[in-house]
Design a protein around this nucleic acid. Structure first.
Lengths: 127, 127
DNA sequence: ATGTTACTTGGTTATTTTACCAAATAACAA
DNA sequence: TTGTTATTTGGTAAAATAACCAAGTAACAT
């Protein structure tokens, strides 16, 4: 059974984003959701942040997040499947790297949301 | 029981993003993940896209996504909880709007990832 | 071959998420 | 009051996700 996001011939046509921006079919939203979901986990965010500095092997990433190696490996495969990261084997180690750099600017916006939340909470406290 | 992301006094301190960008505590990653997770669903993406045009009532959004009204309402509450949208009641209707506009630029990057995926798939086909 | 290191995969269990229906609430109308 | 419309909330079942351990693979060393 082939995972949804895998780059198979079958998936190739299905996941073509159209160029019109806002009139998108449901399939396109599924694909986008898959990519975003692949980021939506604390450990995965931590790893993406770390990969901003450059490629890292699985062992380094594991030290960073502190979970079981198999857990880290599975997180990486989710992100690889979504196209967020790519890997490269060198000797015994596997190095992961960011595949599309803009992912990092993503975080600025998330932080803006959190700041806005804090500000709203602060306003609520003052009343 | 209070939901994790609710803007309570207790959560106010916990979710303060620090200003140093890359040295963040685990709690901050949880908060970021919550925001991103709130986007990570096809129907929710569709609604965010629709809200880019301006505020919309729940009934309009329901017509758009086509699920049960209660389902749509719950999706909206997830996004509201994360701070992505805000609501306003007018008569019988509740209008939702984007709370932090940068959320939309988010999508450009996701589309870049998908384009990169397609390109890779195309390269794979040529071999 | 045998062992070792670095990683992935399979299996299991616990938790979370999602969808729908049904019932509750809220605002307005008659 | 009674009814109607718009929305939320509670309950429940199905599906997806996440964590760990154990077993498998792959590259290299002895």
């Amino acid at each position: 059974m082939v995972p949804d996001g895998l780059l198979t011939v079958a998936n190739y046509l299905a996941k073509m984003p159209n160029s019109m921006g806002h009139t998108m079919n449901p399939e396109a939203y599924k694909q986008k959701a898959m990519v975003i979901k692949a980021m939506a986990h604390p450990s995965r965010l931590l790893m993406l942040d770390a990969l901003a500095e450059g490629e890292k092997c699985v062992c380094e990433l594991q030290r960073l997040v502190g979970s079981d190696l198999s857990t880290v490996s599975k997180h990486l495969s989710v992100m690889k499947n979504a196209g967020l990261v790519a890997d490269r084997k060198e000797g015994l180690q596997v190095y992961y790297r960011l595949r599309v750099p803009c992912v990092l600017r993503f975080f600025d916006c998330v932080e803006a949301v959190l700041r806005e939340n804090s500000a709203a909470a602060a306003r609520a406290l003052r009343e």
